Lab assay of single mutants.
Amino acid sequence: RHRTIFTDEQLEALENLFQETKYPDVGTREQLARKVHLREEKVEVWFKNRRAKWRR
């Protein structure tokens, strides 16, 4: 597996949602994934990693 490289637009959308909710539900993740052309799984893992970074 290779590392996903997120575009600035994707990161902006992910960060904006993170400010709203640290734990978006699957529907919200799917909606964002469609909007920025990512797989929902990638969005889910990004949030998991972003929460870990936020806790540190």
Rank of each mutant, 00 (worst) to 15 (best):
V36R: 00
F47P: 01
N16Y: 12
Q31K: 15
H2E: 14
E30N: 08
D25V: 05
I5K: 11
R51M: 03
F18M: 04
L32W: 01
R50D: 01
L32G: 01
T4I: 09
E15T: 03
G27W: 12
V45W: 11
K53N: 08
T28M: 07
K53V: 14
P24Y: 03
P24C: 03
P24W: 03
N49M: 13
E9G: 09
F18K: 02
R39E: 12
H37C: 14
F18G: 02
L38M: 12
Y23V: 03
E40I: 10
T28H: 13
H37Y: 03
A52H: 04
D8R: 09
R51E: 01
T4F: 13
N49A: 11
R3C: 14
A13T: 04
Q31T: 13
R39Y: 08
L38G: 00
F47H: 03
W54M: 12
Q10A: 08
V26Y: 09
T7F: 02
V45F: 07
E30M: 12
L14P: 14
V45S: 15
E9I: 09
W54C: 08
E20C: 14
L11P: 01
R1V: 10
A33V: 03
R3T: 14
E15Q: 01
Q19T: 09
K35T: 06
E30G: 13
L17S: 06
E12H: 04
K35D: 06
R3P: 11
L11C: 05
E40R: 08
L17K: 07
T7W: 00
R3Y: 15
R34N: 12
K48P: 00
Q31E: 15
R50N: 07
T7C: 03
R3E: 14
Q10S: 02
L17N: 00
N16I: 14
A13D: 14
Q19N: 12
E44N: 06
R51G: 02
K53L: 14
A13V: 06
K42Y: 14
R1K: 09
R55L: 13
W54K: 04
D25A: 05
E40D: 12
R55N: 14
E9L: 08
N49E: 15
N16V: 07
L14A: 01
H37T: 06
D25I: 04
D8C: 07
T4M: 12
R55G: 09
E44G: 06
L32Y: 04
K48W: 02
H2L: 11
N49Y: 11
F47I: 04
R1D: 11
F47T: 02
T21E: 08
R50E: 08
L32N: 07
Q31P: 02
R50Y: 05
R1I: 09
R34T: 04
W46F: 01
T7R: 04
V45Q: 13
W46Q: 00
R29I: 15
L14W: 01
R50M: 04
Y23D: 08
F47N: 02
Q31V: 12
K22W: 06
V36S: 04
T4L: 12
L11F: 15
T21F: 09
K53H: 10
W54V: 10
N49T: 12
A33H: 03
N49R: 07
L32M: 00
E9Y: 06
H2Q: 15
Y23G: 00
R50P: 00
L14V: 00
R34A: 09
F6D: 05
A33F: 01
E41K: 09
K48E: 09
A52T: 10
R3M: 14
W46T: 00
D8K: 15
D25M: 01
W46I: 00
H37G: 14
V26W: 05
Y23S: 02
I5D: 15
D8A: 13
R29Q: 03
K22V: 08
I5G: 14
T21C: 11
E40T: 10
E40G: 12
E9S: 13
R3K: 13
V43I: 12
E12A: 12
A13G: 08
T7L: 03
K42G: 13
A13E: 05
Q19P: 01
V45P: 03
V45R: 10
R34E: 08
T4Q: 13
R50I: 00
Q19D: 05
R29P: 04
T21Q: 14
H2D: 12
F47C: 02
R51D: 02
E41V: 05
Y23E: 04
E44C: 10
E15L: 02
F6K: 02
Q10W: 01
E40S: 12
K35W: 02
R51K: 01
E44F: 04
V26F: 11
K42A: 15
D25R: 01
N16L: 09
K53W: 11
T28Q: 12
L38A: 05
Q19R: 09
I5H: 09
R39S: 15
E12D: 14
A52V: 05
H37E: 07
E44H: 09
K48M: 10
Q31H: 10
D25Y: 03
E30R: 11
P24A: 02
H2G: 13
F47M: 05
T28V: 14
E40P: 14
Q31F: 03
L11G: 02
D25G: 07
L17H: 04
R51T: 01
V26S: 11
N16S: 07
H2C: 05
R50V: 02
Q19V: 08
A33M: 00
L38R: 00
T28N: 04
L17E: 04
K48V: 10
E20H: 11
K48N: 06
E30Q: 12
R34C: 06
E44Q: 09
A33S: 07
W54H: 12
R39M: 15
K48R: 12
H37Q: 09
F6Y: 14
W54A: 12
V36E: 02
T28R: 11
W54T: 11
L38K: 05
L38T: 05
N16E: 08
E15F: 00
L17P: 00
N49G: 07
E12F: 08
A13Y: 03
K42I: 14
W46G: 00
H2W: 06
G27K: 13
K53M: 09
R34G: 05
L11D: 07
D8W: 05
L32F: 14
D25H: 02
R55P: 12
E12G: 10
E20V: 10
F6G: 05
Q10V: 06
E41M: 00
V45C: 15
E40A: 09
E9C: 06
L14R: 03
F47Q: 00
A52W: 05
E41L: 03
E40Q: 09
T4C: 06
K22Q: 10
A13F: 02
K22M: 13
H2T: 15
R39Q: 15
V43Y: 00
T7Y: 07
A52S: 10
V45T: 15
A52C: 03
F6L: 14
T7V: 01
V36Y: 15
R50C: 06
R3I: 13
N16K: 08
A33G: 12
A33E: 00
F18L: 02
L32A: 03
A33P: 01
G27N: 05
Q10E: 02
Y23N: 04
F18S: 00
R3F: 11
E41T: 07
V26M: 10
T21S: 11
W46D: 01
L14D: 15
V26R: 12
N16R: 13
L32V: 07
E30I: 10
T4R: 06
R3H: 14
V26P: 07
E20D: 10
V43L: 06
E44Y: 08
R39N: 15
R1E: 06
A52E: 11
A13R: 05
K42M: 14
V43D: 00
V43W: 00
G27T: 14
R39F: 09
R50G: 00
E44V: 09
